[in-house]
Nucleic acid binder design. Structure first.
Lengths: 254, 254
DNA sequence: GACAGGCGGTCGACATTGTCGACCGAGTGG
DNA sequence: CCACTCGGTCGACAATGTCGACCGCCTGTC
C-alpha cells in the first residue's frame, strides 16, 4: 500500500493550517481552505479534538491547536540524541563566547531550533526552541546547505526572500558561499536575517560523518565582529564545540 | 458521522506509544503493542513519517517522534492566550518571591506546564514546559481539582500513587483538602511529590469565571515554609499574581 | 421583529479507502 | 547454513471515511 493514508495527511494539513494562522479558525474556514467538505473536516477535527491535538473554544466554536502537541513535542526533545549530547557543550560555548547559542537541525525548508542557551547576562530573552529559521540567511542554515545536499535542495528555485540588504538572494551566490564554507569549515551570517545581529556556525556530524545538525553563536554585530569580519577567537570556539559534539555522537561506535 | 476516525485514533495511539517508551520502537513492536496488523501499522507510520510527525532511524529502521511535533507544540504556545497574558506576571512573581514559577493547565490526568520561570539565581535549571505533573500531589493540581469538577473527575477511583510519605492517596482526603482550598482560596503541597520541595498555587479564571489554569511557586521547603506552614507573604504574592492574570484575561470583556 | 445568511454540527448513501494476512528479501545469531 | 525475525510489499475485501444535503442556532440587518 505505497500511498499515504488520506485522512492522516488531511489531519496533518489541518494542524499545519491551525499552526500557521495566528488566530483560531472556524470549521468552515478550515474546510474551504483545504477544499474539503464540511462534514469531512468536522470528522477529522472531532477526532483530533478527542485525542487532544486540537482544542475548541466553547464560546466561539473555533478551533486551535491542542495541548497534546506540546507534550509530544517535549517528548521529541527528550529522545533527541543530538540535543542530549550537545547540552553541556552548548552551555560551555555560551559561557566561553558570552553569546547566545543555538542548536539546529534541518526540517522542511528551514532550520528547526532544538536547543537554545541564553546569552549569559541578565537581559530578558525568549526561548526559541521549536521555532524555525531560514536556510539561506543564517549561519546554521548555510552550514547545513554546504554539507547536506538535501538541505541545499530545499531551497528550490524560487526567489529567496531578502530580510535585509545583506541577504543573499541569488542561488549562484549561495552556492559560492557554500563552497567557501566547505573550504574553511565554518559559516557566518552578518546582518543577513536581522539588522545588527551576526552569527557563526559549524557543522555537527554523526558517527558515520553524516551531517545531522549545526551549532552557532549569535549576537550583536558590534560584539561578534571586528573590522567587518567575525572575530577569529569566536570562530575557534564554535568549531571546537561542534567537533566536541560530533565526537560525542560518535562515541558509541569507537 | 459521530464516531472517531479510526486511522487517526490509531495514529495518535502510535505517537503516544512512541512518546512513552524512552527508546525507539520497531515496526513489529508498534504493531503488536497496539494489536494492529503489521501492514496497517506500517501504512500509518509511513504517512506520519512523510508528514514529519515521526522519524525513522535509517540504520536500525526503528521509529521515533519527529521534529514537526516540536514545531507544532511551539505554535500551540504561541497562540495560547492564558500563557501570553501571564508571561509578565509570572516573571514579576518569580522576582518577588525569589522562587521558581510554574503555570499549568489541566490536560488529561495531569497538569501540563505551559510556562516556567526559573528561580532568579544562577543555578542551572532545566525548562519543564511541556512536561506533566500529577494532579493529586501538587499545588497546581489540587487547585484545579478544587475548582474544576472535570479535573477532580480525572482522578478516577483507582489508588493514587504515593510519591512521598506525605502524598495524599485517599480520595476522601483529597476532597477534604479541596474543600479547604476552596474556602481559603489557595493550595499548598509540602513535600507531597518531591522530598524537600514545597509549592503554593492559586487559581486563574477566565472572563466567565471558568477555571482555566493555575499558577504556583515552588522551591526548597526551607525557604518556602516556616514552622511547618507555608509563609503567608508568599501566599499573598501567588494569589495576587493569579488575580492579576485572571483580570488580564477578562480585560477583553469589560 | 421577521428575515436572510452565516455558523457548527448531523445524517445516510455510496464507493473510495484503509485494513488485513500472506508473502518477500535482507540481516542476524545460533 | 539454516531458521528466525526484522521491515516492507501486495492484492482482495469490505469496512471505512467521504460527500453534499439538511438542521437548528445565532447574529446582524432591513
Amino acid at each position: 500500500m505505497p500511498g499515504p493514508i488520506q485522512s492522516l495527511s488531511r489531519a496533518a494539513a489541518i494542524m499545519r493550517l491551525l499552526a500557521g494562522g495566528e488566530r483560531r479558525l472556524g470549521l468552515s474556514e478550515v474546510a474551504t481552505a483545504l477544499d474539503l467538505a464540511k462534514g469531512t473536516a468536522h470528522g477529522i477535527l472531532r477526532t483530533l479534538q478527542q485525542e487532544g491535538f486540537v482544542e475548541q473554544d466553547p464560546e466561539s466554536g473555533k478551533y486551535q491547536l491542542g495541548a497534546e502537541l506540546l507534550r509530544l513535542g517535549q517528548s521529541y526533545l527528550d529522545v533527541h540524541e543530538l540535543r542530549a549530547r550537545a547540552l553541556v557543550w552548548a552551555d560551555d560555548l555560551a559561557r566561553a563566547a558570552g553569546e547566545t547559542v543555538y542548536l539546529g537541525v534541518l526540517h522542511q525548508q528551514g532550520v528547526l531550533i532544538v536547543h537554545h542557551v541564553f546569552r549569559p547576562d541578565d537581559t530578558r530573552q525568549v526561548l526559541e526552541v521549536g521555532s524555525m529559521q531560514p536556510l539561506h540567511s543564517t549561519a546554521l542554515g548555510k552550514v547545513l546547505m554546504a554539507y547536506d545536499p538535501v538541505a541545499r535542495g530545499e531551497l528550490g528555485e524560487g526567489p529567496l526572500e531578502a530580510y535585509t540588504s545583506r541577504t543573499l538572494t541569488e542561488l549562484g551566490d549561495i552556492d559560492a558561499e557554500c563552497a567557501l564554507i566547505r573550504e574553511r569549515g565554518w559559516a557566518d551570517a552578518i546582518e543577513e536575517t536581522w539588522e545588527g545581529v551576526a552569527s557563526i556556525g559549524a557543522l555537527i556530524q554523526d558517527r558515520r560523518r553524516n551531517p545531522v545538525g549545526a551549532v552557532c553563536i549569535s549576537g550583536a554585530v558590534e560584539r561578534v565582529c571586528e573590522d567587518g569580519f567575525v572575530r577569529p577567537s569566536l570562530v575557534a570556539s564554535v568549531r571546537s564545540a561542534a567537533r566536541a559534539i560530533s565526537r560525542d555522537l560518535g562515541a558509541g561506535r569507537f
